Computed example of a mutant assay.
Amino acid sequence: MSHATSSAGQGRRTGRRTHPYDADYPGKFGDIGSGSYDSPHAVGEIWCAALMQLTRNLAGVLGKPRGYAITWQAVIDGIKLTPKSIIPRMPGRRLGSAG
């Protein structure tokens, strides 16, 4: 499963997360700032769910080891390209990761 569990999750199957980070995750980038996606934690869930979906998509095409390696290298390289003047929030990281 692709979700965190902890005692802080109050016994929920998804831990602290509102939903598992699977293909059925309901939040999309366009939901940020609206509804239940208006807090930093909720925005982080969308960011993580998107990265998990990207990882699954690439792993499905390239095989798991190569798909995982390419995804996470792209994320790390994107973070390195993010200007220091950008506050480290999802849109800034997304811009850095997009090149």
Rank of each mutant, 00 (worst) to 15 (best):
M52K: 00
G35H: 10
D77P: 00
G99N: 09
D31N: 13
N57R: 06
R89Q: 09
P65R: 05
A74V: 06
Q10I: 00
D38V: 00
N57S: 08
T18W: 05
H19V: 00
D77E: 10
S36C: 11
G60A: 14
W47S: 10
T71D: 07
P83Y: 11
V43D: 07
G30S: 14
S2A: 14
G35F: 07
G67A: 12
V75E: 12
V61D: 15
Y37D: 04
P20N: 07
S34Y: 02
L54K: 09
L54D: 02
S6V: 00
G15I: 02
A98F: 05
L95Q: 08
I79D: 03
G60E: 13
R94H: 03
R12G: 04
G35V: 03
S97W: 00
P91F: 09
S7C: 07
L62F: 05
L81H: 08
R13H: 11
S36I: 10
G30F: 04
P65A: 10
L51A: 10
K64A: 15
T18N: 13
K64G: 15
P91W: 05
G27L: 09
A69C: 07
M52Q: 00
V75K: 02
A59E: 11
G33W: 10
R94E: 07
G63S: 09
G99M: 12
D38I: 00
T18Y: 09
G30Y: 02
H19Q: 06
L62Q: 01
A50M: 04
P20E: 13
A59F: 05
G35D: 04
G92T: 05
L95M: 14
T82M: 15
G27Q: 06
